[in-house]
Write a protein that binds this DNA or RNA. Sequence first.
DNA 1: ATGGTCGGCAACCGA
Length: 254
Amino acid sequence: MRIATFNVNSVRTREGIIRRWLDEHQPDILAIQETKVTDDLFPAASFEEAGYHVYFRGQKSYNGVALLSRTPGLEVGYGFDDEPADASRLQWVRFKGLHVVNTYVPQGRDIEHPMYAYKIQWFQRLRAWFDRRFTKRSPLIWLGDMNVAHDPIDVHNPEERKKHVCYHNDARAAFAHCRDWGFIDTFRLHHPEPGHYTFYDYRNPRNVKDGKGWRLDYILASPPMARRCHNAYIDVAPRLEPRPSDHVVLVAEF
DNA sequence: ATGGTCGGCAACCGA
């Protein structure tokens, strides 16, 4: 089984990229973040044509999550149990023998900004949510854009990024606490070496050109799922497109 | 050291 995650930065702008990627890689599940569209305008028919069941929740301009799947989801939900629910950042789908949780974690804007405290809190709320709903024996996948480079090898220039909201100690600790529920990082399992990234900030074209990136996207597995994971890879195809996205595709095979 | 680019959507906000 092949599972993938891709922050598309507008599902309407990347619809062509997504369709081509689906045709070429034939994933069983593709999780998408930053769809940036309300549900009435989501291009669901296009992905259904490609042979997928489509589950999504979005809003105007910002955020938005979606999950495409070869097999139908048996149950689907959005958001935390309490407020703010953040329904367009947290999605879960139950399949036969598998739960998938798709998140677009708040970026945080700046260390001093209230959204950074909100981001830290968001990981804490998510950990409590995992604790309530699942056990370590659950066949569970948590994937998406976590907006954190977990370790020094997950960012090109860690020494210069200590005050960045995606590498600051508090963000890394909050992400770590959430992972400590019992998740295993499927990509790192198969690629212990540095230099693999899933995001290239195109506010600096030089860094994009030089491949100086961040690893912000993850496919994390509960112990029973991690035991079944035999391969993981990053596909940089979206960077080769005429209108490249800032994130690329992360894949894990089970 | 600074600022650089996208996408959505119609002025700037968010990343």
